[in-house]
Design a protein around this nucleic acid. Sequence first.
DNA 1: ATGGTGGATGGTCCA
Length: 258
Amino acid sequence: MSTITVATWNVNSIGARLPVVEGWLAKNQPEVLCLQETKTIDEKFPYSVFENLGYSAAISGQKTYNGVAILSRLPIENVSKGLHDDDDTAQKRLIVATIAGIRIVNVYIPNGSEVGSEKFAYKMQWFARLRVYLDQHCDPAQPTLICGDFNVAPEERDVYNVKAVQGKVLFHPDEHRALNVIRDWGFQDTLRLHTQEAGQFSWWDYRAASFRRNHGMRIDHIWVSPPLAQRCVASWIDVEPRKCEKPSDHTPVLAQFS
DNA sequence: ATGGTGGATGGTCCA
């Protein structure tokens, strides 16, 4: 029986990361790769590079900041871009498509900058709006997958040093509450279906030699509804691309389904 | 230790 592998990766500019992403796709060949922070307008998205590797793409890009895309070896159906109440000027942070019967919600949740800032308030609002979107447009009784850069580490075992990050952006009680509201819609964390190990990180700050010291956090996730949780045969983080020349600060997270 | 580095941009903003 064939399986389907879904990956998510914040690439921090698809332009800057093209060689790395291309090499990783050629080697790993997941059926689906969800990208965040593509940082390029739709007209400049490198479709042909991915077509040559067997992938079609659904994209929602913008200049300089944000931008999301779904690459797939299987047909992409019913694409939807943006939250239900986004206007024309909204940041490009959400794209949804159906692939192999799975409703895939690809998100780049706002970083939040600093706790208490305007950007942090925007992050909290975005979480609340995402829950409304899920309530209105998705169904937990169907195979539904949400993945991307959530910009929150869920638990103490998902950060390198609790005392160093407690109460700061990416590990604040308000963010944990917001994350739980999304989870309570009906999601399970695929990585935690398969391992309880601490120190499984998906992001390391470029600064302060964070990767060398393994000062990381698990802020990129693949969550699934019950019908997909039953089919989830594996989930893991591939740290290899974080070791290469000119890496993204994030590394891919993957989940495999029967 | 309020720094550090990286991307897009063309001054800074964002992460």
